[in-house]
Design a protein around this nucleic acid. Structure first.
Lengths: 352, 352
DNA sequence: ACGCGTTACTAACGCGCGTTAGCGAGGCAC
DNA sequence: GTGCCTCGCTAACGCGCGTTAGTAACGCGT
């Protein structure tokens, strides 16, 4: 491109100072004594030449890349279904920008190899790892080496700063809402297989709500789904074989969406026959038919908090071991009291 | 972290060669004569030491950052609603990884300032700009400077390589499908304001389908929406004031989702009273009630094609000025022939 | 035996910045 | 006037690589 990208020495020459001074001014170096007049001249010269410091050169000299890495450790299907990824990314980016950092994203398929190069090559100064699985031994080694890592989500048993919502409490609140409406026979469809911590936590919250209300936990009421709507539909179909269920806690909105499809296909209505609560509050949740009662996840804030924590960690500031952001149960119309006389069929298949 | 990150000189010492040789081996430098035995020793030494070349140092010395930038030029609302972003990003990432490049993402709010630093600072070697608006003069300057840029989407009137689907043809196919079913009074809800090229193109496709079938284009049947479901619902509500409409082409699935909510709220049915076609084929489209007939967008391939084009451009290989990927009309159940006797109300408000 | 080309490698330089050590000028206390 | 600050600035170095120019050894033909 342009024949002569300006160097800091060009700025220095134009401003009549040394490159050292240019560096001091442009980096707002604390403790450097620069007269207002000199500072003005330097800034003016930089502006006039359209000077942009060479990122790699800064990285080399300064020993930092000024880049944050976002590692998406989920399966491709999960990433595809993650309706909140954009928001999280925007949040992280906002935090990064405020510190003059950039964001590098590494989406990993199951076998897409490693992400530790990112940090070992100093391509990034730290990583936000989203949705790590319990069996991620790569992560362990990285952290053992002292690499700055923040987990978005939770990974029990490791000592890494993490940012998350309280999945247990949120799931419990969602389930309690159903109980308060009068439901006693409440199924649970997970958002993912149980080797994902969030899936386990949300199930635990469901269970705790039940037990707190004196309703025995029934393992056969819990069905695993797998991120997408199709798996939610399958799970719900299975549950519909029994006719005592009057409510479902679906541990993600996407899965809830599939479940609602299954309920419709069985000729039943939401919430008339079966009430449904979701989790995530994806942008479309309010437009489901009926609008979905769900747990609102502060996606943007999660990204931002992860970014802030990571930057703190990188810069040697103290970091909370665990940041928990508040959720909120958004009550829409997919939940209502159970039918007075047990479940009825409408125009669907008759019980056989 | 680790006290001594190994340098290339450490690898050289262990292998008993010079750092030049290490560089030659690790970069597979064409034209360099390296004996198999030496090559093996170097690779072994690198492996043994856990050597990862310093990204910034490579960037400085090599004059390239080995990084691609993805600029999201859309408004935050649009980004949030973009259910296909994850897929696009994965596609771009796949292309980048194949060339040993990384991907830096810059989501820009309307007033989040500039993204040209990204490339002017050599933080990236090129940019994929997603959803640029016609009035983006920053882009123009960048390209005039010779910066490698690929547009994802389309921006008429500029000479920049772009990757997109044929929005006009796809919209035309979607609308034709409605016409073939027998619909004559077909409304159009745009996916975005008209300063987005895609919104205009999809509207044009709708119009061409009409005119090709001898149906006069009626401007009052076209209503602007604005990315999200809420705007789709508002648009549809407005359209429902007239009772002659039997079908709607909604230029995005999210907007279609809102429109379907409005139709339901009016006590009408899809497709019984009003048929609906969408655009995008977001993952949830097949689970709408009823499952949405829509245009499938090859999101992953779009990302990958953009990446490939950008890498070609960066490496001086010839690049198609415009890459057009195929779409496909996915017919589900939201479309059916119009009611025989015009539109009927079900249990909704009576006509007044 | 000599020249020439090829093979296999290396020394030395520089990419563009940040940083460390240090220098001169001016002020203040004595 | 001398000593000792602080203020404002700079020369010089090195970060860790890629690359260019070059050398030594080794055939191979005549």
């Amino acid at each position: 491109m342009h024949v002569n990208r300006p160097r800091s020495k060009d700025v220095a020459a134009l401003a009549g100072v040394s490159t050292t001074t240019v560096s001091f001014v442009l980096n707002d170096r604390a403790g450097a004594a620069i007269s207002p007049e000199t500072r003005r001249r330097v800034l003016e010269a930089a502006e006039q030449l359209g000077y942009h410091p060479h990122a790699s050169a800064r990285g080399l000299a300064g020993g930092r890349s000024n880049t944050l890495g976002l590692v998406l450790r989920q399966s491709p299907e999960q990433v595809a279904e993650d309706a909140l990824l954009a928001e999280t990314l925007r949040g992280l980016s906002a935090a990064a920008r405020a510190a003059r950092y950039r964001v590098l994203v590494e989406p990993l398929g199951a076998r897409d190899g490693t992400y530790t190069d990112l940090i070992r090559s100093r391509g990034t100064d730290g990583l936000v790892v989203s949705g790590p699985r319990v069996d991620d031994e790569e992560l362990g080694r990285l952290v053992a080496d002292g690499a700055p890592v923040v987990i978005q989500g939770s990974l029990p048993g490791v000592d890494i700063p993490s940012v998350d919502v309280d999945n247990v409490a949120a799931a419990r609140a969602a389930t309690s809402h159903l109980i308060e409406l009068g439901h006693r026979s409440i199924a649970c469809i997970t958002n993912a297989p149980f080797h994902y911590a969030a899936a386990r936590e949300r199930r635990d919250g469901y269970r705790m709500a039940l037990e707190a209300a004196g309703i025995p936990f029934d393992d056969t009421l819990v069905v695993e789904a797998n991120f997408d709507a199709a798996s939610g539909r399958r799970a719900m179909s299975r549950l519909l074989n029994r006719d005592d269920i009057t409510a479902v806690f679906a541990a993600s909105d996407v899965v809830a969406f599939g479940a609602m499809a299954a309920i419709r296909e069985a000729g039943l209505r939401v919430p008339g026959d079966i009430a449904v609560v979701g989790f995530d509050d994806i942008p479309l949740a309010g437009y489901f038919d009926p609008p979905l009662t769900t747990v609102h996840l502060p996606a943007h804030d999660l990204g931002r908090a992860a970014g802030v924590a990571l930057l703190d960690r990188i810069n040697g500031r103290p970091v909370e071991r665990r940041t928990v952001l508040p959720t909120e149960l958004v009550i829409r119309s997919s939940t209502a009291p159970p039918p007075a006389t047990g479940r009825r069929s409408r125009d669907g298949p008759q019980p056989n």
